[in-house]
Design a protein around this nucleic acid. Structure first.
Lengths: 137, 137
DNA sequence: TTTACATCCAACTAATTCAGTTGGATAACT
DNA sequence: AGTTATCCAACTGAATTAGTTGGATGTAAA
């Protein structure tokens, strides 16, 4: 079990945006977070397409959060880069496992899955922000 | 985030062993769980090398749990096939990330990591066993 | 209006991991 | 001796990861 780079970088990027008193350019995020600008491109796209960040007003003007930091969860950031969490395929729609109806391990994985989702859904970007910054809350 | 096949099959195999009133052969597990006998080989090796199961009395005699089902956790099964859970490398020994000292996302991943470990450590094989079976507890 | 900057976007790639398979050694039981 | 069971290492195709490359497009400053 690993958290992939998209999600790790995505979380760092959105925290960077949340912490900034003014709109932030991709380049600034890339520099501060030491992520290749090109790679960050797709990270920003993920956050943007998921409706978590927006361009503040046309090109070159920088990114801001699309909603309040307290209303953005880590799980939303996770889902910007991965489909809904499914630790195993046993409970996927496309699953054809015959044993599914009576499988104690499947039940356990499902339970664990729910709890992990819950853990990620209950942490907001606001809680991960720099305490000094009091905007965007 | 996915649970890999080794761990999924390993959990199923050890539940199978726990549920059985008598020692179980690899072949029997393979048949009942519909896992290729050859592949199961390495699964059994993992469980055995981690001290979770033992040969009940030399070759051909079948496997039994090495300790009581209530003393074997899902996390122990996890660790039979993967190193200690580390969702991200930020807190690995070999990590050289400079930002580590003051990184809110690192702190969050660490917290999540601990909680997931806890969730896996607090579930025992006994809880996953068939209720009808009352041995090995 | 040209030019520089910034974003958008698709295709490519090397390296690693996954999910097994193959094949054989060894050991015990019949 | 032959069958069965376990042990063990090497191999493999497919998929995923973690990016890079290169260019199109759109905006704003010079």
């Amino acid at each position: 079990m690993k958290i992939n780079s998209n999600i790790r970088y995505g979380l760092r990027a959105i925290i960077e945006i949340a912490n900034s008193p003014k709109p932030v350019l991709q380049r600034e995020i890339a520099e501060r977070q030491e992520i290749s600008l090109n790679y960050l491109d797709s990270i920003i796209a993920g956050l943007k397409n998921s409706g978590l960040i927006v361009n503040s007003g046309g090109k070159g003007s920088g990114y801001i959060l699309a909603k309040k930091a307290k209303d953005i969860t880590v799980y939303q950031v996770y889902c910007a880069f991965s489909p809904d969490l499914q630790l195993v395929n046993c409970f996927c729609d496309t699953n054809e496992c015959q044993r599914s109806n009576n499988c104690p391990s499947k039940d356990y994985w499902f339970e664990l899955n729910s709890k992990i989702k819950e853990l990620m859904s209950s942490k907001t970007i606001k809680e991960l922000m720099n305490n000094d910054i009091l905007i965007n809350q």
